[in-house]
Amino acid sequence: MQETLGLSNVPHFIIGGAVHISINNQVGYTTPGERSRSSMYCTDIAKMCGMPVIHVNGDHPEAVVRATQIAVSYQRKFRRDVFIDLVCWRRWGHNELDNPRFTNPSMYSIIDARRSVPDIYADTLVTEGVLTEEEIKKSSEDHVAFLTEQYKLVDSYIPKNVNKHVKKSHIDARLRKLTEGENLDWAAAEALAMASLLNQGYNVRISGQDVGRGTFSQRHCMLVDQTNDEIYIPLNHIREDQTGYLEVVNSILSEEAVLGFEYGVSVESPNTLCIWEAQFGDFYNGAQIMIDTFVSCGEAKWLTQSGLTMVLPHGYDGAGPEHSSCHIERFLQNCDSSETSPDGDDVNWGIVCPTTPAQYFHLLRKQVRL
């Protein structure tokens, strides 16, 4: 946040202001609010850039609406940043296993005695004669019924308007190849590897620029409805009792930040096939720091294993001088493989140039099954 604010008024980085909302729930996991910072307010960081801060009590919905309207009006008129400090509270803990009463008993003795904000506001509307109790009850029941109905529709949803070219050249062609069992290409081998892992209960996450369709329109692991832009991921509907799912992450135009994030995901989720794909092989150049600092040597430094898979399309057959090489020699230089004896299982990473789709299929599965 501080780095972002530091850019807010710098030439070539000004965006015309933004509305920042701080969900100030008074507790930082196990840390009381007064010990989580060096300032009185959590929004005092805005003072370094002279940005106005609107403090509002989250127990009063109408005041929150009014504060938001003021903030938006200010940002629109003056094209500058503005903060809303939403002073509120969190009834439950940081996660399902957390009980904040362990470390914040005084505050939670007050919270436990409080009714919910919707209930308090409903009573206010009844007292002021805006609504009756029956109308409030019906409104709540109608909304719950609507949410329940929409939730049920998810299971039966199918996209009906697939792009005609995708249907002909990709869907129909792949179904024909699978039926005949011949001429399976790289993308089909990849899809089969993912599907088999998902079927076994593993999760798969693929991240990178335009990975949904694939840079070369070869993947199409997500289909987009041509009438309403809704997305459908076929591999997430293999069977009714499916427990493993594919996450398709069309990333921002950044290599360093995205690869660093994916490395963290691979460490945190060892049962997930975590793939980062460079749009072209040489695009990994922007992420070289992450590769040198974390990916190639993280286990030696911190005894932390990573199952990250980096896919670098193209060797020396890219599209012109800007996309001509993924510099495989750099990866070889970072490998601790022995040059004089067979390698064991303790090599820091594997550098592979598969020559057939079948090899790619087995490599992806091996990465998780190891």
Results as ranks from 00 to 15, higher is better:
Thr4Trp: 14
Leu5Thr: 10
Leu5His: 11
Val10Asn: 08
Pro11Glu: 14
His12Tyr: 15
Gly17Thr: 12
Ala18Asp: 13
Val19Gly: 01
Val19Thr: 04
His20Gly: 05
Ile23Gly: 08
Ile23Tyr: 09
Val27Asp: 12
Gly28Cys: 08
Tyr29Gln: 09
Pro32Val: 00
Ser36Tyr: 05
Arg37Pro: 05
Ser38Ala: 14
Tyr41Val: 08
Tyr41Ser: 15
Thr43Val: 10
Lys47Phe: 10
Met48Tyr: 14
Cys49Phe: 15
Gly50Cys: 13
Met51Arg: 12
Pro52Leu: 11
Ile54His: 03
His55Val: 13
His55Asp: 14
Gly58Ile: 02
Pro61Thr: 00
Ala63Thr: 03
Val64His: 00
Ala67His: 01
Thr68Ala: 04
Ser73Ile: 06
Lys77Tyr: 05
Arg79Ser: 11
Arg80Asn: 14
Asp81Thr: 09
Cys88His: 06
Trp92Ala: 11
Gly93Phe: 07
His94Leu: 11
Asn95Lys: 06
Asn99Tyr: 03
Asn99Phe: 04
Arg101Gly: 00
Thr103His: 11
Ser106Met: 01
Met107Cys: 00
Met107Val: 07
Ser109Lys: 11
Ala122Cys: 03
Val126Cys: 05
Gly129Ala: 01
Val130Trp: 03
Glu135Phe: 03
Ser139Glu: 06
Ser139Gln: 07
Glu141Ala: 06
Thr148Glu: 15
Glu149His: 10
Gln150Leu: 13
Leu153Tyr: 10
Val162Pro: 02
Asn163Ile: 04
Asn163Gly: 07
Lys164Gly: 09
His165Leu: 13
Val166Tyr: 00
Val166His: 07
Lys167Ile: 03
His170Thr: 11
Ile171Pro: 07
Glu180Phe: 01
Glu180Cys: 02
Asn183Tyr: 09
Trp186Phe: 01
Trp186His: 00
Ala187Cys: 00
Ala187Val: 00
Ala189Asn: 01
Ala189Gln: 03
Ala191Cys: 03
Leu192Glu: 02
Leu197Trp: 01
Tyr202Cys: 11
Tyr202Phe: 09
Asn203Gln: 05
Val204Ser: 02
Ser207Trp: 06
Ser217Thr: 09
His220Met: 05
Met222Arg: 14
Leu223Tyr: 02
Val224Tyr: 04
Thr227Pro: 00
Glu230Gln: 13
Ile238Gly: 05
Ile238Val: 04
Leu246Lys: 06
Ile252Gln: 15
Ile252Thr: 14
Ile252Ser: 15
Ser254Ala: 12
Glu256Asn: 10
Glu262Ala: 12
Val265Phe: 07
Ser266Thr: 01
Glu268Trp: 09
Pro270Thr: 09
Cys274Glu: 04
Asn285Ile: 05
Asn285Glu: 10
Ala287Arg: 05
Ile289Gln: 09
Met290Ala: 09
Ala300Asp: 13
Ala300Gly: 11
Gln305Pro: 11
Ser306Arg: 00
Gly307Ser: 06
Gly307His: 11
Leu308Ala: 04
Val311Thr: 12
Leu312Ile: 06
Pro313Ala: 12
Pro313Asn: 15
His314Gln: 14
His314Asp: 10
Tyr316Pro: 08
Gly318Phe: 12
Gly320Phe: 15
His323Gln: 14
Ser325Phe: 13
Cys326Gly: 06
Cys326Val: 09
His327Trp: 14
His327Phe: 15
Asp336Leu: 13
Glu339Ser: 15
Thr340Met: 08
Ser341Asp: 11
Asp345Val: 09
Asp345Ile: 09
Val347Trp: 00
Val347Ile: 11
Trp349Ser: 10
Cys353Ala: 11
Thr355Ser: 08
Thr355Lys: 06
Pro357His: 01
Leu364Arg: 08
Val368Ala: 01
